[in-house]
Amino acid sequence: MYDVLIVGGGATGFFYGYQHRRKNSPEASGLKIAILERGKEVLTKVRVSGGGRCNVTHACFVPNDLVKFYPRGEKELRALFHQFCSGDTIEWFEKHGVELKIEEDGRMFPVSDSSQTIIDCFLNTTKKHKIDILTGQSVQSIFRSEDSWKVETNQQTFRCENLVMTTGSNPKIWEMLEKLGHTIIPPVPSLFTFNIKDKRIKDLMGVSAFASVKVKDSKLSASGPLLITHWGMSGPGILRLSAWGARELFDKNYQFILEVNWLNDATLEETENQLKELKLEHAKKVVGKNHLLISPTDCGKVWFWLLKFH
């Protein structure tokens, strides 16, 4: 019998286990707390986040400003951020021996540049506070009795007084929660790349540039690094657009026209001056296939380059 059973061995589950223990101390010192994880390892998403470096938080310390970076849930997140925001996150990790650094774009990583630092921090903290970590436990059913919860996994049956769900995007768990009376909003894909079949970018795989992107006939727009891939476009700008437009793009059945402004915020005059400089610097160079060719006689006729992709 556990006092608290946490289903989901990710960062949220680990952090909650520690916070529950600390918040209820010294009364919580005798509580039995366990984290159930269906996989063989815990914190697997932490390991790969931020390209293996783990982008822990963002250097934005005002709750009302921070919520604007989230596509959905602004109202709910504002209340939470007033209780625990980026500054509190930094302080928490510093107290547990992890120093963070701020990069130019505001993202914050451990100074070690390794997600293992964050994983070790969570594992050491749970061990210190005697929180059980049970892996290979795939939840099959959840039942509520008068005084406790019964959780059946593929290995055994657990009972607990308090049940905490931190499973993330697990449709099987959503179905169980729905049967218990919770309302589940149908999920849609987010943070995805765009599949674009267009001969103009076919041979440009690997090319990256800062650009502005917009979905035609909508208010969806974003800017940032854009990467041309073997099957379309990716990069922070595209991922940001897909995150903010997740439901609208779903309603369009992912069929839409994407407008790409390669000049981003530069004016035509600024771009013309840059091209004139390039003309003087590289006047005798031959531009090969798949490159934009500006001849000396056309250099004064620079037009806004806007590509539209289906």
Rank of each mutant, 00 (worst) to 15 (best):
M1C: 15
V7Q: 00
A11C: 06
K23H: 07
S25Y: 13
S29A: 15
E41R: 09
V42I: 08
L43N: 01
V46I: 09
S49G: 04
S49V: 09
G50V: 09
G52W: 04
N55D: 02
N55I: 04
A59Y: 00
R72Y: 04
G73Q: 07
A79L: 14
C85D: 10
T89M: 06
I90M: 09
E91F: 09
K95W: 07
V98T: 05
F109L: 11
Q116S: 12
I119H: 00
K128N: 11
D132M: 11
G136A: 10
Q137T: 06
V139A: 05
Q140W: 00
E146H: 06
Q156C: 09
R159C: 12
C160K: 05
C160Y: 04
V164L: 12
S169Y: 11
S169V: 11
M176V: 10
L177P: 03
L180E: 08
T183H: 10
P187Q: 07
P189F: 01
F194P: 03
F194C: 13
R200F: 01
K202H: 06
K202Q: 15
L204R: 10
A209S: 08
F210A: 13
K214C: 05
K214G: 03
K214P: 00
K214A: 07
L220R: 00
S221N: 07
A222K: 04
G224N: 03
P225C: 08
T229L: 02
T229Y: 01
L241H: 00
L241W: 01
S242N: 02
A243G: 10
K252Q: 06
Q255A: 08
F256I: 02
F256R: 06
N261L: 05
L268A: 07
T271S: 04
T271A: 10
E272N: 10
E272C: 12
N273E: 14
E281Y: 11
A283D: 12
N290A: 03
N290G: 00
L292W: 12
I294K: 05
S295V: 14
T297V: 11
G300C: 05
K301V: 06
W303P: 00
F304T: 10
L306T: 13
H310V: 12
